[in-house]
Structure formats: structure tokens, C-alpha cells
Amino acid sequence: MRKDSHSIETFAAWMLALLWLLPLAYSFWSAFHPSEYATRFDITAPLTLDNFAKAWSQAPFARYYLNTVMLVTLVLAGQLVIATLAAYAFARFRFVGRDVLFALVLVQLMIMPDVLIVENYRVISGLNLLDTIPAIALPYMASAFGIFLLRQTFKSVPNELVEAARVEGASSFGVLWRVFVPLGKTTYIAFGLVSVSYHWNNFLWPLIVTNSVESRPLTVGLAVFGAPETGVDWSVITAATVMTMAPLLLAFLLFQRQFVQSFMRAGIR
């Protein structure tokens, strides 16, 4: 009786898992087969890379890749430096206005840049930055979430370590660099993975502020490429879709455990 219910559950779990993988599996099928097999599932269908070659030649995907890589790097580098400094101040200094400033930081957790598109567009255009990669990155550069995570990590650093570094004559910056930053390694990795996935995938804001091949990230490039009015073949669009998600998907498959743990750490706060 017990055994039976177990095998039924195992079966159900597997069915759900296969159902969950179906959309992804289908996109790979369609991307790697000639378009006449897009909805004909024949195990003997010939494999081809033609769809990728077509997508690659019909739109500047190389440039889109470069833009996305630059965007993700810029955002992450900025976020790490800015959040480290701010978190250090909040975790280790007692100063006038600390609680007020921290509350002001937390406002961003509640009202994210994603919903302030109208006024942020005004600000970016006032700064004369429209249609550039920094325009996409700037609203996300000071991450309340990053500051929050690092502040918690820094608070748990034992005082003895700080005192020891001070005795050896380290300055405030020295202590930060030699004690806090190395001890925050797991938090940095968690935050980094979440940030990179978020900005690799982000769409609406980049769509609004970019208008040319030189600044468009992959997601926006894909949307422009796949728009119905372009009349591009379905299999070619799927190939482009697979190209857009491949790097993250590959990274995820390789570092599954880190990804899951990072998302969990990041979510729970």
C-alpha cells in the first residue's frame, strides 16, 4: 500500500517535470531542425545549424551580445563597489542620520526602478544619455538589495578580526579591503549571480531607453528581430531565442547548486 502510493507520486513528479521541460525542449527541437519539421516530430529529421546561421546574419546579434556583456559588467561592477562602501558605513559606523539614510535606501526595495520608467526616462534624457548603455545601467547602479545583503554580512564579522587588523596599523579602507571583503565572498557570489541573471534578462527599461544597434541588449534585439511584421521564419526566431538564453542556461547547468543557493539567499534576505 505504502509502496504503491510512492510509485504513483514518483510517476506524477516525473510527468510534471517532463511537462515543465517541454517548452524548452521544443524550442531546441525547432531551432536545430529545418523549418518544415517545426511541428512535425520525426526522430529521423535531419539536424541543422542553418537557423542559427540565418539569425546571426539577418540581425547584428554579435553586437547585441557585446552590448549585453558590457551592460551586465557595468551594472555589476558599479553595484559591487557602491554597495560595499555603503554597507560598510551602515554596518560599522555610528553616525548622525544613519537610521534615516537606511530607511531612504530601503525605499528602493519597495519601489523599484522598473516602475519609475516615466520619470527615469526624463532624468536620463536630461542627462543627455538616451540610447547609451550607461542609460540602461544607471537606475540600477545603487542597489538597495545589495546594500542590504552586504550590511547583514558585514554586521556578522567578529570584532576581534577588526581589532587585530587595526593593531597591525590598517586604515578604515585597509580593514574593509582585507577583512570585510574576503569574508563577504559568498554574499558577493550570491548577489553577483542574481544581478547578472536579472540584467541579462531585463527588457522593458532597455526597450524604452535604447533605439539603435549600438546600445540594444540581446533581449531588445531579439524582440525587434522576432516582431511579427518582420516576417522572419519561425525556426529562425527560435534559433535566435535559444542564442539569447544559451549563456545563462549553460552557466546555470554548470553551477546549478550556486545558482539555486544564490537565488534562495537573495530572496530570503
Binding site: 558605513a89 559606523f93 548622525v96 539614510l101 531612504l104 519601489i111 519609475l116 520619470e119 532624468v123 545603487a142
Partner: peptide
């Protein structure tokens, strides 16, 4: 110490003010 802390917070606060606090008020 206060001045030090404020300096550490300056980049974050400037960016937050420009892209979060000001836009909320401007909205």
C-alpha cells in the same frame, strides 16, 4: 567618523536620490 561614513555613502545616496527618490517626487 560621521564624515567618513557620509563619504562612504555618497555614491549610493546620489544615485538613489537621482533614480529613486527624485523620480517618486517628480511623479
Amino acid at each position: 567618523k560621521s564624515v567618513n561614513a557620509w563619504l562612504l555613502l555618497l555614491p549610493a545616496m546620489v544615485l538613489l536620490a537621482t533614480f529613486t527618490h527624485y523620480p517618486i517626487i517628480a511623479t
